[in-house]
Design a protein around this nucleic acid. Sequence first.
RNA 1: CGGGGCGUAGCGCAGUCUGGUCAGCGCGCCUGCUUUGGGAGCAGGAUGUCGGAGGUUCAAAUCCUCUCGCCCCGACCA
Length: 494
Amino acid sequence: MSQADKMQERGTITPRAENYSQWYLDVIREADLAEPAEVVKGCMVIKPNGYSIWQQIQRDLDDRFKETGHKNAYFPMLIPMSFIEKEAEHVEGFSPELAVVTHAGGKKLEEPYVIRPTSETIIGYFFSKWIQSWRDLPLLINQWANVMRWELKTRMFLRTGEFLWQEGHTAHASHDEAMVEAQKMLGVYADFAEQVMAMPVVKGDKSETEKFAGAERSMTIEAMMQNGMALQSGTSHDLGQNFGRAFDVRFQNRDGELEYVWQTSWGVSTRLVGGLIMTHSDDSGLVLPPRLAPVHVVIVPIYRKAAQRAEVLGAAEKIAAELRAQTLYGRRLDVEVDDREEYKPGYKFYYWERRGVPLRLELGPRDMESRQVMARGRTGTFAEKQAWSWDGLSEKVLSMLEAMQGELLESARARREEMSVQVDDYDQFKSYYGEGRSRFSYAHWCGDAACEAKIKEDTKATIRCIPWEREEESGSCMVCGKPSKGRVLIAKAY
RNA sequence: CGGGGCGUAGCGCAGUCUGGUCAGCGCGCCUGCUUUGGGAGCAGGAUGUCGGAGGUUCAAAUCCUCUCGCCCCGACCA
């Protein structure tokens, strides 16, 4: 029986080609990452395996924010309703998805609280208390928090009622400085996505219609999922003085004049975990880049008799100890010895495979003789089983993991290239977005919201961003024919 | 929020049309023995308020009403 048939029989993972959405859910279930909260609409339970991936993400990003001079803080989850209403576009953008607390302590509240959908307003309020002088600037704050947006349609990790994220909020003395900050943080995200998640992204500006509610300018990193759809994976906003005005956040400049601060905000969320799944995983389950894998290496001992068992396990633990002393990208290797007696090796192979462990080492009686292990990587070059000597094993493991990290990025890049096109003819463009299909199209657009709306209307695809790295190229808008200075990225999006 | 689909054991499902030995199957789980280099075999065993609440009926997983949740497709969003 083929592996696919077996899986079918076990009802485990639907092949991607058959039903991509179902595959996504199957991978999450089989890797034990999360499950729907069931009793709480639109929310999810992030299980230990899923949460530890998020923690790896947090750890890496948090270090990066420290390097860029940001300090962590925490603001209340409840925000007075009136705060949200202070910035006109902000209210308009968020009011449909607010959850509101109207009663507490057994009494109706005088003023309802909203559960934060994002914290610009309450942070604006406190910034106004903390900032008096140009000497207080820049103020660089980050918050790790949960937020709630009452979504109509949810999908685990990609869009849930409550989600975990990080929101950076900064205040500056000049617009230029704020712009630099917002761009810099988008760069931090892009570098993180590519180097750590092995997920290539396109950096760019959001169109006017796709902008964050209350921002002057929104920037985004867009990643391509295996089905050609785009995932907005991180955003960074130049808030101008909009929240400064709304919350009276003023400082005295060097000339002694009172001026509103210039603010930014930027965030990434647990959505990244969804992006990770849909970038690398396959029909056998989860695939994790080593830099984010909660377990780097699993050692599966193989033995027949009790005497062998003691010997093999002894050697396995010794190897594990040696590996655990190694560091990969500044993190100790996490090594698991699967010494469960209830399961046979074959079962364990599949078990760790669908959980995305990058490297498996088998150690059995034959290997004891020849002082070697049988190594098999989760994907790529190392997916062919090969024998590695105990001598120099640590180096071998480290270099394999590094290579895999690189390969994942390369194959994600290659796939993206394959599914990207430059297109000038609108009919041809439309043909790319039939039922369930998507890709990255680069096309000329005049900048007019009407043409943008028409594209969406006709194809469900949207302008994901105006890429930063694009050639100046005069052309004519694919829709209306008016002049355009360059191509924009268009795709269906999650 | 509109259209469609689905909730039956941990997972995947049959049974619903045509109410009545329908509380069932596969995997998983438990016990024992034999096994262990890609999902072990045999024997025995446990597990369900059939998503929830009402109703119709002598009788409801099955019919009716309401409700909650999930999935897919749209409109809105990280």
